[in-house]
Amino acid sequence: MIVVGLTGSIGMGKSTTADLFRRRGVPVFDADEAVHRLYAGPLAPAVEAAFPGTAASGAVDRVALSRAVLGDPAALRRLEAIVHPAVRAAERAFLAEAASAGAPVAVLDIPLLYETGREADVDTVVVVSAPADVQRARVLARPGMTAEKFDAILARQLPDAEKRARAHHVIDTGSGVEAAGAAVDRLLATLRDGPG
């Protein structure tokens, strides 16, 4: 089974591209979705213990947690030490299930793949990208997003140009879903000939 690492900076169309893989029958592990599930119960006590006032009724309040860690690298590292091992365990279970089902390709949707050194954990890396103005417009259209928050998130991410340079494959999402879908089809055809 070929394991694809799918990544890209905020607002580049990673979630949409992951969905394009799903529509083609490729199993996709969504790290953000896994974190949402973990915050809804299993990790809430540990997060509350580390960041008092960020969990109520057995679930993490993501807005409160964001306020507690945004702009504080030490706090962010403490949070990652809680979250990352649980996400990795869920990821391993996903890959085992995909392999036992005979999937030829499985996708790990990893938002900070390069930033967390995860490229060694996959067979090939796919970066989604779009022009900077498209990215900014997409992100600032999200509920609760501000220019300050967007800039803080970007500061934690490798520049798009560096991600593209390091990727095995790049999918341009700036030309719409149909063009991105065609790129996914071409990529899957290429992967049938071997990763990389």
Score class of each variant (00 low, 15 high):
Pro131Val: 00
Pro111Phe: 06
Thr116Gln: 14
Val122Phe: 13
Gln135Pro: 11
Val134Glu: 13
Pro111Gly: 10
Arg118Lys: 14
Ala103Glu: 13
Ala106Tyr: 02
Val105Ser: 04
Val139Met: 09
Val105Lys: 03
Arg118Trp: 15
Pro104Trp: 09
Val125Gln: 07
Asp109Ile: 06
Gln135Ser: 10
Leu108Thr: 01
Val134Ser: 11
Val107Cys: 02
Gln135Asn: 05
Val107Leu: 05
Ala120Asn: 13
Pro111Ile: 01
Asp109Gly: 07
Leu113Trp: 06
Val128Asp: 06
Leu113Gly: 04
Arg136Glu: 15
Asp123Gly: 15
Leu112Phe: 08
Asp133Asn: 09
Ala103Phe: 09
Ala120Ile: 12
Ala132Trp: 01
Val128Phe: 03
Asp121Ile: 05
Val122Cys: 13
Ile110Trp: 05
Leu113Thr: 04
Gly117Ala: 14
Glu115Gln: 09
Thr124Lys: 01
Val122Glu: 08
Thr124Phe: 09
Asp121His: 13
Asp133Tyr: 00
Val125Ile: 05
Leu108Glu: 01
Tyr114Ile: 06
Ser129His: 11
Asp109Gln: 09
Ala132Pro: 15
Val139Tyr: 07
Val134Cys: 12
Pro131Asp: 10
Asp133Met: 00
Val139Leu: 10
Arg118Tyr: 15
Val139Glu: 12
Gly117Phe: 13
Ala120Gly: 15
Arg136Trp: 12
Ala120Phe: 11
Arg138Gly: 04
Ala106Phe: 01
Asp109Ala: 06
Glu115Gly: 02
Glu115Ala: 06
Glu119Asp: 15
Ala137Asn: 09
Val105Leu: 07
Ala137Glu: 15
Ala120Arg: 12
Ile110Thr: 02
Leu112Trp: 03
Pro111Ala: 05
Val127His: 02
Gln135Ile: 10
Gln135Gly: 08
Ala120Trp: 07
Val128Leu: 02
Ala132Asn: 00
Val122Thr: 12
Leu112Ser: 06
Ile110Asp: 03
Pro111Trp: 03
Val105Cys: 07
Arg138Phe: 01
Thr124Leu: 13
Gln135Leu: 12
Val134Ile: 15
Pro131Asn: 03
Val107Phe: 03
Ala137Tyr: 03
Arg138Tyr: 05
Arg138Gln: 08
Glu115Asn: 07
Arg136Ala: 15
Val128Arg: 00
Val139Arg: 01
